[in-house]
Computed example of a mutant assay.
Amino acid sequence: MAIMGLRAIYQKPRTTVSHPEHRKYPYLLRDLVIDRPNQVWCSDITYIPMKRGFLYLVAIMDWFTRKVLSWRLSNTMDAEFCIEALQDALMRYGTPEIFNTDQGSQFTTPRFTGLLEERQIRISMDGRGRWLDNVFIERLWRSLKYECVYLHAFETGSELRVGLTKWVTHYNGQRPHAALAGRTPDEAYHDAPTPSGLRVVTTYYPQSFCIR
């Protein structure tokens, strides 16, 4: 289609729609050295195409270890499924120092930010249109879709939920990461020491980031 100059006429679902009356927070991760679990968590929403229609998926990830802490599916863009994912992550893993999202209305609603503020978690938000500000969860979406979603024609939400559960379990517990010195996200999050000399620095080059 790209070679022939063809383009689908359907409207792609939008997952980031800001609310003009919600407070926006500054981006806190620029040049920040992220070197331990629970220092920074991040979250994002993506849409999951199915055999008929699509669903929305939200995930919460620990930035340093890439571990998926919690996720939820929804057939609407209401903030409730994001709030449920956040509450689940907080209950199971405690509190991070910083929580980073985009400026979508699900993350800027006082119902969501209030949960963070009452626990004294610093709130960070990407600049508008800057997907690189949340690059690791964007790469999670790419891996999840190419390795799971696009290989299966999920027909129902329950089938999709089973498939995602298997993939996330494998990703967290069995998939080694070069940036984690060959450890899995679970190993890095729970007990393994920080790799010697590893510093994660977000660097703003198109379609790239650097690990030092």
Rank of each mutant, 00 (worst) to 15 (best):
F154L: 02
T156D: 15
C148E: 15
Q174C: 01
E117G: 15
V135M: 04
G129V: 08
L140I: 08
H170Y: 08
E159T: 14
H177R: 03
T165K: 00
H152C: 07
D126F: 05
G163E: 06
R161C: 10
R175N: 11
D133W: 02
Y150K: 10
E159N: 14
E138I: 09
W141C: 04
V149P: 15
R175V: 08
L140A: 12
D126K: 06
K166D: 12
E147Y: 09
E155D: 05
R119N: 13
R119T: 11
M125Q: 13
D133C: 02
L144N: 08
Q120F: 10
E155P: 05
G127H: 06
H152I: 14
E138S: 12
E117P: 10
N172A: 08
P176R: 00
R161P: 04
G173Q: 07
G163R: 14
R175F: 09
D126P: 05
G163L: 11
L164W: 00
D126M: 05
L132F: 08
R122Q: 12
R130V: 07
Y146P: 09
L160W: 03
N134V: 06
D133L: 03
H170M: 06
H177V: 01
V135F: 02
Y171R: 07
E159Y: 13
E118L: 02
G173A: 06
H152L: 08
G173D: 06
T169R: 12
E159W: 13
I123M: 01
R130K: 13
R175C: 07
L140F: 13
T156W: 12
H177M: 01
Y150L: 10
N134D: 03
G163N: 13
F136P: 08
G157V: 02
Y171I: 15
S158L: 06
R130F: 07
N172H: 05
V168M: 05
V149W: 08
L132C: 07
E147C: 11
W141K: 04
S124R: 09
L151Y: 13
L144T: 12
E147F: 13
E117L: 14
G127E: 10
K145F: 00
L116M: 14
F154K: 05
G173P: 07
E147T: 15
L164G: 00
R128A: 09
R122M: 13
D133M: 03
G129W: 05
N134M: 04
R122D: 15
E155Y: 04
L140C: 10
R130I: 11
R161L: 11
Y146D: 10
V149R: 09
L116K: 09
W141V: 02
V162C: 12
N134H: 06
C148W: 05
A178F: 01
T169F: 10
G127V: 06
H152V: 13
H177K: 02
Y146S: 09
F154V: 04
S124A: 07
F136M: 10
E138K: 12
Q174N: 06
R122G: 13
N172F: 08
W131A: 14
T156E: 13
L144A: 15
D126T: 04
N172G: 11
G129N: 04
E117Y: 09
L160D: 02
S124Q: 09
G163M: 07
V149G: 12
G157A: 04
R119L: 15
P176L: 01
T165S: 01
